[in-house]
Amino acid sequence: METCIIKSPLGFTKIVGDIEGIHSVVVLNSEEKITDIIPVELEDCVFQINEYFEGIRTQFDLKLNPEGTDFQKKVWKQLEQIPHGKTMSYLELSKQLGDVKAIRAVANANGKNPIWIIVPCHRVIGSDGSLTGYAGGLHRKQWLLEHESPYKQQSLF
């Protein structure tokens, strides 16, 4: 397994993966030493994440290989279908997965998503439109949703 640390607008980001795919992408809550030489297996991931933060990339094209239960992987796969700039409620996500009663299990799987940004768990919100739970912190969730919004707040002056 290869690892690298990069700097993003939301903090230091740790990427782990190998030739089988990206295993995890997590934002860290501490300063870390930035990796000088990115392992070849992670270069494309770093490139695409940088493009995302530059506002160039709206979809990722990476081989993913997260560890999780079959149910978690099913939820994470469904998260990948939420378009850039759009949100979905936990209830809607549960309905899409075929079981409205599984909302808590779906929310739990969403919270255990190991591949930050690329599997866009930040696009899932409360049924009332509220920003609810986010492993990276609600301030990061809000930033990501604003970054992806087609409606940019403009200054009046």
Rank of each mutant, 00 (worst) to 15 (best):
R104T: 12
C121V: 03
G85D: 07
D61N: 15
G111Y: 08
D99F: 14
I115V: 03
T69P: 05
E146A: 11
E54W: 13
L93R: 07
G68W: 04
P39Y: 05
G133R: 02
N65Q: 05
K86V: 03
T35I: 09
H147I: 02
M88K: 15
D44I: 11
E67R: 10
R140V: 04
E51N: 12
L62Q: 00
L42S: 04
A105T: 11
I56A: 05
N108S: 15
D36I: 06
G55Y: 05
K86H: 13
K141Q: 12
L138V: 15
Q78Y: 06
P114Q: 01
K152A: 06
V119G: 00
I82R: 00
K14G: 04
V75Q: 01
K77H: 14
V124Y: 10
S155P: 01
E146H: 13
I15D: 01
K86A: 03
S8C: 02
L79S: 05
L91N: 02
P9G: 04
L91H: 13
Y90V: 08
D36E: 08
V25T: 10
H147A: 01
D36W: 08
S89L: 10
P114V: 00
S89G: 05
E31P: 04
D99G: 14
P66Y: 01
D36K: 14
V100C: 03
H84Q: 01
H23K: 12
I19R: 12
Q48T: 03
A135L: 02
K74L: 14
E80F: 13
G137P: 00
K33Q: 07
G21M: 01
N65R: 10
I125K: 03
E146I: 08
G98H: 02
G111L: 10
N50A: 14
V40G: 09
I38V: 10
